[in-house]
Amino acid sequence: MSEAKGTFTVVNERGMHARPASKLVRLASSFKSEVTIEKDGEVKNAKSVMGVLLLCGAKGTSLTISANGEDSEACVKAIGELISSGFGEELK
């Protein structure tokens, strides 16, 4: 078991709305590790779309991804890239 952690900023204009949240949850669910997502001390299961939506991640929000499991490093890296790339949405 290994732990990994990373902090990333939401850069896309509309924030982590339904479509990006769905993408993030689907990506997180593809890893074996347990993954959490944290905003201002509030921690949610990153494999729960409702949990992720409840964080109300607007543009500029700082999110900490923590993974625990055999593929934790790859998991945090992949999710970090998704967030930092603006979820493939418009940045501006």
Binding site: A18, R19, A21, R26, N45, K47, S48, V49, M50, G51
Partner: peptide, 13 residues
């Protein structure tokens, strides 16, 4: 939006 609804059906919450 239906994609998000599908994920909600599996949601641990």
């Amino acid at each position: 939006i239906l994609d998000a609804h599908l994920l909600m059906l599996d949601d641990a919450l």
